[in-house]
Design a protein around this nucleic acid. Sequence first.
DNA 1: CCGCATCCTCATGGATACTG
DNA 2: CAGTATCCATGAGGATGCGG
Lengths: 227, 227
Amino acid sequence: MEKVNQQSKKSRTYGQFCALARSLDVVGDRWTLLIVRELLPGPMRYTELKTSLAGIATNLLAERLRTMESNGIVERRLEASSLTYALTPWGMGLREPMEALGRWGAPLLATGRGEDTFQPRWLTLALPALLAGASVPSPVELGIETDGLLMVLRIDEDGPRAFIRRGEEPETVFAAVPDVVVALATGHVSIEEALAAGELRGDPDVLRSVFAAGRASASAPKTTPSA
Amino acid sequence: MEKVNQQSKKSRTYGQFCALARSLDVVGDRWTLLIVRELLPGPMRYTELKTSLAGIATNLLAERLRTMESNGIVERRLEASSLTYALTPWGMGLREPMEALGRWGAPLLATGRGEDTFQPRWLTLALPALLAGASVPSPVELGIETDGLLMVLRIDEDGPRAFIRRGEEPETVFAAVPDVVVALATGHVSIEEALAAGELRGDPDVLRSVFAAGRASASAPKTTPSA
DNA sequence: CCGCATCCTCATGGATACTG
DNA sequence: CAGTATCCATGAGGATGCGG
């Protein structure tokens, strides 16, 4: 009696022999994919995760990290007296589906940032995803300064990649608020508009070459959600 | 009495200015992506959905369909005295992220079908996703008979596509239980093994050309989940 | 501080019954 | 057939405590 069982957290499964369903059994829980997004640029500590993911309950974060670890997509690292959480190679493989899902949902950003929170590191996932089609003749490296942080966007034959650089600075740097950067990448605002409005500064030629393929999504929601 | 309110379903949002987070606000709820998966091959009726998604509660299905409709990814169609649910173009755009997620989770199928349910129509999503890399010299059309249903897999310069055919039959047809089809596509079983085991019949040459790129995932879970 | 564990409350999910 | 209504179980959100 007492406790029926205290192991085997039933872990609500769809019980379907389908790769998608089984994937969702693993990463379908609330917050899980957002935790992965946080960890894609690199390992983080518990409290960093907690503050970056505004609104997540502390017990939820702990529980998610635990099951993600036991599912093999996250691992704890005890390095230099600091405990960090990092993605396993298997977990990093989620980058592709997440970029695809982000591309799909990009039109939802058209309503602009409202009360929503924002973290610069999210751009390191978003920018390469949105510029996936872009190809430039020669490798381009571009600095983006937003929210007081400098990140680097590089496009070469391997496609676009972005990361937060701690060392030296790239040649061309442009600065803008997150909204403008996202609007540029999603094609909701043209480079000319942004430059004219003074919301952007930097070498126009480089900017144009990078954001040329302002990918207007093939299909977008006709009605604004939550009517 | 009365109802307190029937509008404004707060609809728990992450409140983040991020394409991924906003996407999850729309399709992150339980069952939602699986409903999309059902509808990708074509419109379905309420009860068809209900039986195909074994285990979903009827009120949940109704509520999901309602919010999916108001979010613009599903639409009701009243055709020929039968009410069906269909994806909007915007909703069909989910095919890409879902295929990517399915590819990522394909290794999870290695444990085989247990008590899990299975629907042949799920293969119309899975097969093209798993064979995405495959390229054959000339267009190939292959019939796959499983669970008493015939579906067609075609690979041409546009890549692989699969659908359930109601009309004529393709030249080459092979038959197998779902497990074997999936194991072939994921590369967990070689064509030779399957043929030798008699779990498969059909023209070996065609089969080989199609399943040649038995895409072994770059990274897989090292430990079996739910230790 | 950092990394959680506990406790409580309420929104969501799930199973079943019932109805136009 | 296509849902609505109801009731119970579970998971999420928020505050707080607490050992290292």
